[in-house]
Amino acid sequence: MGHMNISRRNFAAGLAGTFALGALGIAGCSGEDNADASGSGAASGTTYKIGVLQLTQHAALDAANEGFIAALDDSGISYDADQQNASNDQNACQTIAQTFANDGCDLILAIGTPAAQAVLGATTDIPVIGTAITDFAASGLVDSNDAPGGNLTGTSDMNPVADQMKLLEELVPDAKHVGLLFCTSESNSEIQVSMAEEELDAAGIGHERYTVSSSNEIQSVVEAMVGQVDAIYAPTDNTISAAMAQVASIANAAGVPTICGEVGEVEAGGLASVSINYYELGYSAGEMAVQILTEDADPAEMPIVTMSADECDLVYNQETADELGIDVSAIVEQGAEDVSA
């Protein structure tokens, strides 16, 4: 997993300028302003136009983006990739998606569920790969995860929620009441929270949902919840992930540990996670894209790819553990990696 952390940070730094453009000055899928990267030795002589719509900037989505680009590079195809970031704005998602559709991209990568929903609203013809999406079918993106049926397929970041709840029990054994923190506009977050509730019910642990509709509400909601709960669970929610440093600052100061949906949230100050490897998730999405571009694979017939439990990473933040006074030696013995700065 070490390579993922290093490459993700390099990627985030290297493309920060591109992402900062957000929906401004959208170049479309071709032209000199593209984030241009080309593989070598493309037998067909074709340079593919690929639009990349990333919902927002945070470590998990950045890593998925980087993995996707790495797979394209490793395949040897020639391509122009137009990187666009919507800054967690649904209107920007729709504008970018429509621009990609109008420009006649050969393929579009949508990173995050709202990004994929916007792209599907813009085109039913251009092949679309989605990634960092928990449940494609439950979010209405495909007919079924086994047989998508349309122009979109991709890779799922369905979380090992049961393992994450066991981790919470192990690290916070006295927890009687858990706060579940997520954004109401993200359907995949509610799926994960429902799964967490089932696990907590089975363990006899109380729980309560704490929701925000935008990042502006995070501070007040977290400040309210830390006086009411013994621990917080934050799923792979894009709004929460992007503001995890703020969440962790408030929670840690109040002595309330946060069990997270993914490694980037732990790096930002959460306590621990059993995390999907988002670089590998994006790499698998890139491999699917190459099949579509070079082998005429049909997204309608390509099942959604889900990572197995043994491909997940057990991670913790030692600085956070020290601040909270929590003993993490048990998970260190299990091979957990410290991802604190």
Results as ranks from 00 to 15, higher is better:
Val226Pro: 01
Ala253Cys: 01
Gln318Glu: 14
Cys260Gln: 08
Glu311Gly: 09
Leu281Phe: 04
Gln228Pro: 03
Thr258Gly: 09
Gly269Glu: 02
Ala289Trp: 05
Gly261Lys: 09
Asp237Cys: 07
Ala272Gly: 11
Glu280Phe: 05
Val328Gly: 07
Val263Ser: 13
Ile292Val: 14
Glu262Trp: 10
Ala330Gly: 04
Ala248Tyr: 01
Val266Arg: 08
Ala309Pro: 00
Ile331Asn: 05
Asn317Val: 05
Glu301Pro: 00
Val229Arg: 09
Asp327His: 07
Glu223Trp: 00
Gln228His: 11
Leu314Ala: 09
Gln291Met: 04
Leu314Gln: 11
Glu319Asp: 13
Asp327Pro: 00
Val247Gln: 00
Gln318Val: 11
Thr239Asn: 15
Glu311Asp: 15
Glu311Phe: 07
Ala243Ile: 01
Pro257Gly: 10
Ser284Met: 13
Thr306Leu: 08
Ser308Ile: 06
Ser241Phe: 10
Pro303Val: 09
Met288Asn: 06
Ile304Tyr: 01
Leu271Met: 07
Tyr283Phe: 14
Ala245His: 06
Met307Tyr: 11
Val263Met: 14
Glu311Pro: 05
Val328Phe: 10
Asp230Gln: 04
Tyr233Cys: 05
Met225Trp: 03
Asp313Leu: 12
Met225Lys: 03
Glu301Thr: 15
Glu323Val: 12
Gly264Met: 11
Ile240Val: 15
Ala321His: 02
Gly286Met: 02
Asp327Phe: 07
Gly261Leu: 08
Asp322Cys: 11
Val315Ile: 11
Asp230Ala: 05
Gly261Glu: 06
Val315Tyr: 07
Tyr283Asp: 05
